[in-house]
């Protein structure tokens, strides 16, 4: 049975902030993204529980059951609170681990008999290179999750990770050049590993350029996600390039299937620095994600 025609509409007034749009005789409702989906009477009464409250999220009053804990992080509000608690710990860990790693690397570890003191750049170069690849993979994973499951938080996480990844890539390239000059005699050489690491930097920058050029947030998120996913093929190329091509760059020093070929104190220093970089990346990305969420929420209000 079809709907009747011109029936007068139930008027829903809105608060001062909301945009007033309504649908017609076939019934519908108006509201802006910040309003609760409840009826109008409750709408005015319910206080906003959090700055990032969104009507489509589950209500926050009941505690989260343990099995649902991780998936609940997909909600911006829950994520924001969790990140606010967690970031200081990771920041502190990064500082401590970094201090310990640098101390071991620059003070405790012995001098390399071939390369002298300059080899100590390894403590920054190798963890930075690892992080540059790892962060790209994590960002690509979030991009895929955002595209497939349309979670609201995934594109935000991808956007938060990319600048940090770009910074690590730049550090890896810079320290690599500083190390290469005394060791190989040249600042730069166009072998497979260096070239693909440079490409990784351009991929990061391309992503940042693309998402900042698109005004519509949704389109920017998804277009950036597509770009990240298409570029992810570059990461295995970087990683395996020293094995596939004869390059000037040395082979992998740390492998999972053989004993490492360096002194244990050097290894300890490098691992500590790797953990420090990882903790730093987490702290910075989460903090950036919180900022991005606030930006988006503010832009969403008319």
């Amino acid at each position: 049975m079809s709907m009747t025609g011109i029936a007068p509409l139930a008027t829903t007034s809105t608060d001062a902030v909301g945009d007033m749009t309504r649908s017609g005789a076939p019934h519908g409702r108006s509201g802006d993204l910040a309003d609760a989906p409840a009826s109008h009477a409750r709408q005015a009464a319910r206080p906003r529980a959090h700055l990032l409250d969104h009507p489509l999220d589950p209500p926050l009053d009941q505690p989260l059951a343990r099995p649902r804990r991780w998936r609940a992080l997909a909600s911006p509000v829950v994520f924001d609170r969790w990140a606010a608690r967690v970031v200081p710990w990771f920041a502190g860990a990064a500082a401590l681990l970094g201090a310990a790693g640098l101390w071991i690397g620059f003070v405790v570890a012995p001098t390399d008999h071939q390369q002298g003191e300059v080899y100590r750049l390894i403590y920054l170069h190798v963890p930075a290179a690892w992080m540059s690849m790892f962060l790209y993979l994590v960002a690509a994973l979030h991009a895929a999750l955002g595209l497939i499951y349309r979670t609201r938080l995934s594109p935000v996480m991808a956007r938060a990770l990319v600048p940090t990844g770009a910074v690590f890539t730049a550090i890896a390239l810079w320290t690599g050049a500083a190390w290469g000059k005394p060791t190989w005699g040249t600042w730069w050489v166009w072998d497979a590993r260096l070239t693909s690491e440079l490409l990784l930097l351009f991929l990061y920058l391309g992503y940042l350029a693309l998402v900042s050029a698109i005004d519509d947030v949704r389109r920017a998120d998804r277009a950036g996600a597509l770009l990240l996913l298409v570029g992810v093929v570059n990461v295995p190329v970087i990683y395996f390039s020293v094995k596939w091509w004869n390059t000037l760059h040395q082979g992998a020093s740390i492998r999972f299937d053989a004993a490492p070929s360096m002194a244990s104190s050097m290894l300890a220093g490098m691992l500590l620095m790797a953990l420090a970089c990882w903790a730093y990346a987490i702290a910075v990305s989460l903090a950036r994600a919180r900022c991005l969420l606030r930006e988006r929420h503010l832009e969403a209000l008319p």
Binding site: M1, S2, M3, D19, T21, R22, S23, P26, H27, G28, R29, S30, G31, D32, L33, D216, V217, E299, A300, L301, P302
Partner: peptide
């Protein structure tokens, strides 16, 4: 048949919970 259709653009709802039904010849 359209049931509770909503459209949000640029962070604002244009319409929400829109429902109607249209039959042949309408």
């Amino acid at each position: 048949r359209v049931e509770r259709l909503g459209c949000a653009r640029g962070g604002r709802w244009l319409f929400r919970d829109l429902s109607f039904e249209l039959h042949a010849g309408q």
